[in-house]
Amino acid sequence: MIGREVRPITYPRGEVRASDFRVVEAGVREPRPGEVLVRNTWTSVDAALRLRLREEAPPGYFPAFPLDEPMDGIMTVGEVLESRADGFAPGDTVWHASGWRDYAVVEAGRQALGGVGTLTRLDLRLAPPQAHLGVLGGNGLTAYAGLFHVAGLRVGDVVWVSAAAGAVGSLVAQMAKIRGHRVIGSAGSDEKVRHLREELGLDAAFNYRAGPLPDLLREAAPDGVDVYFDNVGGDHLEAALGALRRAGRVAICGMISEYTAEEPPQGPGNLMLAVTKGLTIRGFRGSDHAHLLPEMRRQMGAWLRDGRLRCRETVIDGLAQAPVALAALLRGDNTGKTLVRIDEVPHRENALGAARHRG
Rank of each mutant, 00 (worst) to 15 (best):
V158H: 11
V158C: 11
V158W: 00
V159A: 05
W160G: 00
W160P: 15
W160V: 01
W160E: 07
V161W: 13
V161F: 03
V161D: 02
S162V: 11
S162D: 12
A164L: 15
A165K: 12
A165C: 12
A165T: 03
A167V: 07
A167I: 07
V168I: 14
V168C: 10
G169P: 15
S170K: 06
S170V: 03
L171T: 14
V172E: 03
V172N: 05
A173G: 15
A173M: 14
Q174L: 04
K177A: 02
K177Q: 11
I178E: 09
I178S: 07
I178D: 09
R179V: 00
R179P: 10
G180H: 15
H181R: 15
H181A: 14
R182F: 15
R182L: 07
V183H: 05
V183Q: 08
I184C: 08
I184G: 09
G185I: 00
G185L: 01
S186K: 10
S186G: 09
S186Y: 10
S186H: 11
S186W: 02
S186P: 10
A187Y: 14
A187C: 15
A187G: 14
S189A: 06
S189V: 05
S189M: 11
S189I: 01
D190M: 06
D190Y: 04
E191V: 04
K192L: 02
K192M: 08
K192G: 15
V193K: 04
V193D: 07
H195C: 09
R197E: 02
E199P: 13
E199W: 09
G201R: 07
L202M: 07
D203Y: 00
D203T: 00
A204N: 10
A205C: 03
F206V: 03
Y208Q: 04
Y208K: 06
Y208V: 05
Y208N: 02
R209A: 01
R209Q: 08
R209H: 09
R209C: 02
A210I: 03
A210V: 08
G211Q: 07
P212C: 03
P212D: 06
P212V: 04
L213N: 05
L213K: 04
P214F: 00
P214Y: 02
P214V: 00
P214K: 01
L216W: 06
L216H: 05
L217C: 05
E219H: 08
A221M: 13
A221N: 08
A221F: 13
A221W: 13
P222M: 00
D223L: 03
D223S: 07
G224W: 12
G224C: 11
V225Y: 06
V225W: 06
V225C: 09
D226S: 04
D226R: 08
D226N: 14
V227W: 13
V227Q: 14
